[in-house]
Amino acid sequence: MSKSTHEIEVEIRNPEGLHMRPAMLFVDLANSFDSDISVRHQDVCADAKSIMQMTMLAATCGTRLKVTAVGPDAGQAIQALRGLVENKFADDSQASVSEKEGSV
């Protein structure tokens, strides 16, 4: 299969930003693809397959990230990751509820 490069810009819309749990979901999803995937926020570029590097992006709510995939399944990877971000990581409401519970 031939290599291709796909790139999109996404906006983080969770009020809590890209904190560790959503970042982990992102990393897990990225790891399910063969392509090399990177995420850029201003001058910081992170390997999308590394939780350490992804947490270094400090992507708050409203942050725009550039996601680049290079490899045989780059197109699918970008589609899947875009879906995750646009769905606010399906984590948002649940996270805020459980964090509230945890704080009582």
Binding site: M52, T55, T60
Partner: peptide, 20 residues
Amino acid sequence: PTANPDKHLQAMETIFKNLQ
């Protein structure tokens, strides 16, 4: 704090940047 998620992210960024 619960009230300031951005500050939490900045603190995490600092910690991870160094643990790297």
